[in-house]
């Protein structure tokens, strides 16, 4: 078991100025890892919330600090924003009294496949995968250029297992558009799992509207917060559709964080 009592862990998340639930999964992860006593101290830092990435090193007592981005994809935030805000170089960076070790984002971990499959099975219990199309939904934008890549990678991995009749990617802002799920898929059952860290405007409102299971209206996100997942399955467009919540709340994420730290050490032997 990983023991790092002489080191600190910082989990870096996006956060939100609008959504009170956005940072929840990152805080829950920090509490879970703190409970396990693996690190001497555990902190969170955010781009859009406090503590900010600019403040966080002032809060860390120990010299050695592992920073793990709680992001699905390698891209704008993990390659540009986090390194810039923390003044990081590649790999190990000495900053004042700290030695900062910048790890791979959680979304790069092979275990994401297992967590997506678990979420898909939970949301559609008893539904045979061989009669089901599984969609993995990514964001897909110019700024997050790799979010689509991450979703496609998971689609390929799950498809290779041969369990589901078909495994497809769908995006909010680029083709193939998730709004065309019924044209893209052929099975009577359709399971949709957003490949996001936390539930928020995208999973409460944007994707349900694109799927056709919710209507666009001001405040829909707060109204849909729990109900959009509780109303499964949805019968529309001649299919049975199951819509899952984001995977960032899965308990397995704690192991993924610890694995990313261990992987960093393996790449950078002392």
């Amino acid at each position: 078991m990983l023991t790092k009592s002489d080191s600190a862990l910082v989990i870096a998340g996006h956060g939100s100025t609008l959504n009170p639930d956005s940072s929840g999964p990152t805080w829950a992860l920090a509490e879970e890892i703190r409970r396990r006593g693996v690190f001497g101290e555990v902190h969170c830092a955010f781009w859009k919330e406090e503590p900010s990435l600019r403040q966080i090193l002032h809060c860390v007592d120990r010299a050695h600090v592992y920073v793990v981005p709680n992001f699905i994809s390698e891209g704008y935030f993990t390659k540009t924003v986090i390194p810039r805000e923390l003044d990081l170089g590649d790999g190990v960076t000495r900053i004042g009294r700290h030695v900062v070790k910048y790890c791979e984002p959680v979304g790069n971990h092979p275990r994401m496949t297992e967590l997506l499959l678990k979420r898909a099975a939970e949301i559609a219990p008893g539904v045979p995968p061989e009669k089901t199309s599984l969609f993995i939904v990514g964001h897909g934008t110019d700024l997050n250029e790799n979010s689509a890549v991450a979703a496609k990678r998971e689609v390929d991995r799950i498809a290779a297992l041969g369990r589901y009749r078909e495994v497809l990617s769908g995006y909010m802002e680029e083709a193939p558009l998730i709004s065309e799920w019924d044209k893209l898929s052929t099975s009577p059952n359709v399971v949709v799992v957003p490949f996001f860290i936390s539930d928020g405007l995208h999973s409460y409102e944007d994707i349900p509207v694109l799927l056709g299971i919710a209507t666009e209206s001001p405040g829909a996100a707060s109204a849909n917060r729990t109900s959009v997942f509780a109303k499964n399955p949805y019968h529309l467009r001649g299919r049975t559709l199951y819509y899952a919540s984001s995977i960032g709340t899965e308990a397995g994420f704690a192991e993924v964080i610890l694995d990313q730290v261990a992987a960093f050490d393996a790449r950078h032997p002392a």
Binding site: E50, S52, R54, H58, R84, G96
Partner: peptide, 30 residues
């Protein structure tokens, strides 16, 4: 968040305040 840490760091001379225009100069994207 961070206020205990920043207070101690400031007391120990570890805080270098950043001018607003330097903060804005490093912004990217939107």
């Amino acid at each position: 968040p961070a206020m205990v840490g920043v207070w101690l760091a400031h007391r120990d001379g570890e805080v270098t305040p950043v001018d607003l225009h330097d903060t804005l100069a490093r912004q990217t994207g939107m």
